[in-house]
Simulated scan of single mutants.
Amino acid sequence: MDVKKAVIPVAGLGTRFLPVTKSMPKEMLPIIDTPVIHYVVQEAIESGIDDIIFVTGRNKRAIEDYFDGCPELEMHLKNRGKYDMLEMVQEISSMVDIHYIRQKEPNGLGDAIMTARKHVSGDPFAVLLGDDIIVNEKPCTRQLIDVFRKYGRSTIAVEEVPQDKVSSYGIISGSPVDEYLYALDDIVEKPSVEEAPSNIGAIGRYVFTPEIFDCIEQTSKGVGGEIQLTDGIRLLNDSQKVYAHQFTGRRYDSGNKVEYVKAVLDFAMKDDGMREEIQQHLQNLGPITHD
């Protein structure tokens, strides 16, 4: 079966970006003039997904509003002959079929995915986390779907992570299948550097068979007192092989302040109208002083 559905969990509180995330979803942080979540949805669409369910929480209405129509704005643009802007705004609200369901309380990524079980309805599905922007000619999710098509098994995206970041990821051990693919042996949630089986970490892209739901349901609370998706993946791997794909592309963890700034700069440098001024500004920066 092909993968046509995606779950995008966006219920997190965004504490790494307080105070702005007190009133604004972290997924709506702008990369110049486009929110992070737009790039995530765009990746899903370009991967062949046509049905998306957002798992939301309180204070996430801005995400719903962004992907909804806005008659007042559209009329305003139309009356002033700003048809390019009008087309852009209308395109956003017609990108893909989008549904919303609430996670009643923050209880871990595994719990967030469980809320989408009825909507997924026994089909294979993708999961895209709203923090990660991944830039590549072939979308990361499409890469995972291609592996799924070949092997018919759940596939997670992984990359090498710095040693000092190992404790922030689900870290895998695996048997190489080819240059970019591992058959999963184990995955450990946020291990210490000493206990980590490798420095290859799972990032925010997955393709799952529907059996993942039964596995998550059987797990108890793990690291941080939450229902961890990693524990569900470990259990799934006991009954059907899970694969880990070392994706190609540039990943920006927009939930990290430094990575977020890098994303803004890199996207600005790709814009012909901004590149020259940005380059000039960076070249003119003098010594950093601390007042």
Rank of each mutant, 00 (worst) to 15 (best):
S173F: 09
D33L: 06
D111N: 14
Q218C: 07
C215I: 00
H119N: 00
L181E: 03
P191D: 09
M28L: 13
V89K: 12
G255K: 02
Y83E: 10
K241N: 05
D146H: 03
K104P: 01
K262T: 00
L128K: 08
I8S: 04
I49Q: 03
Y182W: 11
K78E: 15
E160I: 12
T56Y: 04
T248A: 09
S254R: 03
V166N: 03
G81A: 08
G57S: 13
T34D: 01
E27V: 08
C140I: 14
A126C: 07
G170K: 03
F213M: 05
S254Y: 06
F267E: 06
T248R: 13
G201Y: 07
K270T: 04
Q163W: 05
H76D: 14
D291F: 09
L29Y: 08
I187Y: 03
M269Y: 11
V7M: 05
H281D: 03
Q246R: 15
K257I: 15
M269N: 07
D186S: 15
S254D: 06
S23C: 00
L282V: 11
S175Y: 10
D51Q: 12
T209R: 09
G225N: 14
E189N: 12
V36I: 15
R16G: 00
L285A: 00
R102K: 14
A202V: 15
Q163A: 12
T21W: 04
H76A: 09
S47V: 01
Y151L: 11
T219R: 11
Y83A: 03
L265Q: 10
T141D: 02
P162W: 05
A126K: 01
S23E: 09
V264I: 14
E159W: 04
S47A: 15
V89C: 09
V40D: 01
Q90G: 13
F54G: 03
V188S: 05
C140T: 12
V55E: 01
L184V: 05
I98Y: 06
R58K: 15
R58S: 13
F208K: 07
R16E: 09
R142F: 10
K22W: 01
C70Y: 06
L282T: 06
V161R: 10
D33I: 03
G225W: 11
K60D: 05
P124H: 02
P71E: 13
V223C: 08
D164L: 02
V223E: 09
E179R: 12
G170A: 15
D132R: 05
D231C: 00
M88C: 01
F148C: 07
E194C: 00
V223P: 00
G57H: 10
R250Y: 04
